[in-house]
């Protein structure tokens, strides 16, 4: 009886672990379609700014993005 309980607990814990590790490999896009995060993707990165009233201009020397 005790062994059966232990086995059931182990199976349940394994299922939860597998569920979460699979979730980590996938995400939903804006159309709610599941995307495989492990596949190659292109990246598009935009730049914007939160303002400061102190300065007329702020010139930043952008060199590289990794």
């Amino acid at each position: 009886m005790k062994n059966k309980f232990l086995k059931t607990t182990l199976v349940l814990l394994s299922s939860v672990a597998i569920f979460y590790s699979c979730q980590k490999d996938a995400a939903k896009n804006e159309a709610n379609i599941l995307i495989n995060l492990n596949e190659p993707h292109t990246a598009v990165i935009y730049f914007t700014d939160h303002q400061t009233p102190v300065f007329d201009s702020v010139f930043i020397d952008m060199q590289r993005l990794k």
């Binding site: 596949e39 598009v44 935009y46 914007t48 700014d49 702020v58």
Partner: peptide, 22 residues
């Protein structure tokens, strides 16, 4: 670049690239 140009929701394309995974 003068970053104060990008105010009130304005933005600019900064970078593109290819990633082995996401």
């Amino acid at each position: 670049i003068n970053i104060l140009r990008f105010r009130n929701g304005l933005d600019t394309l900064l970078a593109t690239g290819t990633l082995p995974n996401a």
